[in-house]
Simulated assay, not measured.
Amino acid sequence: MSLIRIGNDHLTVEVSSLGAEMRSLNSRDGRSWLWNGDAAFWGGRSPVLFPVVGKAPDDTVSIDGTAYPMAQHGFARRNEFVAASSTPTMCRYELTASDATRAVYPFEFLLAVEHALDGPALTVSAEVSNRDTRPMPFGVGFHPAFLWPLPGADGQTHVVTLDNGGEPPMVRVRGGLINPAPLPSPFTAGRLVPEASMFEADAMIFPEGAGDGLRFGVEGGPELRFKFENLPNLALWTKPGAPFLCVEPWHGTAALAGGSNALEERPSTTTLRPGETARYAFSVEIPV
């Protein structure tokens, strides 16, 4: 594993070659905003999810009628990426097909993950290219964990506020798979006060209607501002009692409980034709 550090007058970011995962996000005053990966709660920090988001039935997907093993959230987060390019404020890592990936996902592909700074904002993007000769189905998503409470906001009420003011329906997982029966939205006029007890049944998942941006933080205090590009699904997750909240924008979800294990039939799956590329991105603005 190697690290690339990027920075500007506002932020410094470290990104690992393992999974192209962001390992730290600090403001110039030394405050850390990203979860530190303490394995006592959860060892992740900001994994990139590909070629599936969430679980598959029996950890197996079907592609063109053939069964392949597929771990939760896919294999990208466990693979070494190659550093393709970098500047003082940007780095790009790439993952291409190998014998190991073909054994579980029989396609030629390019997954390029870029972290780029612009003032007090960080944009994380993933470009997926189909280098194969047949249509390529996949899901992709981001799983960043931010400190909860945020720096300088101990003891203060934190709020998740959707930019669209919506009240999107929620679903839960059952055995790691999506229970498609919609539940009442925990948002009221776009506003949710997260509590640890809300996550005793695992993640809160919003398959649609959460919009393309939100804020997380203290009203009138420290607040993170998110924007999403081509990421229609949203999840919020933590382990009850852990000091972080994952704000997870996805294009794809876990398979449906009782449904098919066919990769192309998973909710919100993208299928690229040969030679096509799709881009997915989120940005987060830090209060500095």
Rank of each mutant, 00 (worst) to 15 (best):
D9E: 14
H143D: 11
R172C: 08
S268M: 01
V193N: 13
P144T: 04
F107K: 04
G241S: 05
V128L: 05
L34K: 01
P184F: 09
D118G: 09
A39K: 04
A20D: 04
L272I: 07
C91L: 14
N36P: 12
P232N: 02
T157H: 07
D64A: 13
P144R: 00
L122R: 03
V171K: 01
G176S: 00
P274A: 08
G190A: 06
P69A: 04
N8Q: 03
F41I: 00
A257I: 03
G165S: 08
N36K: 03
A196I: 12
G213A: 08
M198Y: 12
T133S: 13
G65Q: 02
N130F: 13
S16R: 04
S46I: 07
E229G: 00
V15E: 10
L110N: 15
E200K: 07
F244S: 01
L95K: 09
D154E: 15
E265W: 04
V193G: 11
W42V: 10
Y68K: 00
W42L: 02
E195L: 08
M170V: 09
L49F: 07
D202V: 09
E114F: 08
V48T: 15
H10M: 05
D58I: 02
L49V: 14
K55I: 00
V82Y: 10
L111H: 12
A97L: 09
F81C: 11
G44M: 01
A126C: 10
A201H: 14
Y68T: 05
R102K: 13
R191E: 14
S197Y: 13
G7K: 03
A196Q: 12
N179R: 00
S2K: 04
P168F: 10
G44L: 00
R174K: 07
R5P: 15
E80D: 15
A201W: 11
P120I: 11
N179A: 10
N26K: 13
M22P: 02
I286G: 09
E108Q: 13
D202R: 00
H158N: 11
A20T: 06
P274G: 12
M1P: 14
A203V: 10
I286C: 07
R273H: 13
P69D: 04
T133N: 12
M170S: 06
